[in-house]
Amino acid sequence: MTAPALEITGLTVRYGDVTAVHDLDLELAAGETVALLGPNGAGKSSTVNAVLGLVPPSAGQVRVLGRRPREAVEAGCVGVMLQHGGLPSQARVGEVVRLVRRSFPSPWPAEDLLVVTDVAGLVDRRVDQLSGGQRQRVMLALALAGTPPLLVLDEPTAAMDVESRRSFWTTMRELAARGHTVVFATHHLEEADAVADRVVVVAGGRVVADGSAAQVKASASGRTIRFTADPATRFGGLPAVTDEQWHGTSVTLRTADPETTLRALLARHDRLPDLEVRGASLEDAFVSLTAAAVTTATPTATAGDPR
């Protein structure tokens, strides 16, 4: 059994009196594609920075392929797209890629790297002249330059348009198929849903859900029941109902057990016009999970986006 690609135990990251990550545990097996999903300020970037050794943990430990973060990075085990990373001025793209490639013990074949990341046409370009999307492609080339077993991407598609985003995720799926472990932080639900085979929802610096996209959807809130009713009515006392929301005369009840809830509803009401029962979307799950975490978390755990 080889070491997990990433093993985080009891990770706590504090900036002054702000706790960005709170006693977080996470283990990624080699070859997984994992989305770290959470709203802004959930602690995603802080977790990523601790994994890379960019911030020291206040407590807990991180092991990347069985090594300490700095050792793993210096051994060339990790490829990274940072949120606040950058490219050097007064340099050409080809020079930057070459420099980073050659710093790794097992560099990605040069020609192929440029093709895979769609950078081939940019090698003679000055870095200062790149567009936002082109910069991101170059950053991806740098992340892949060392054929790293673990890829860590912090909001990689933030500056991309729809087209670049699609081709980016196609590349990521190909990489995952080649056996790379990919972990990416995002607040795009569609991305997590479409790309990751495991979704870890982070809120208030803690993991609030962990599983396949389908499991997260199911675990979060079960199902929703929607129908039209008189806004004066209240449904909070119904069995298994966890949430009640009104849009005009349309009420949406979130329930852990739709059958029980429906029985109770039908026992009390003759009619339930426009009745609709459906599984929660990942977005519903996300909202309910992160909202729950924020209300239960201690005030210090709801940290702002750390810089």
């Binding site: 890379l52 960019l54 990075v73 210096e74 060339g76 940072l82 606040h84 950058g86 490219l87 980073v100």
Partner: peptide
């Protein structure tokens, strides 16, 4: 750029 270099070997 220095931050980027920091995550290379």
């Amino acid at each position: 750029w220095l931050r980027q270099l920091r995550v290379t070997p």
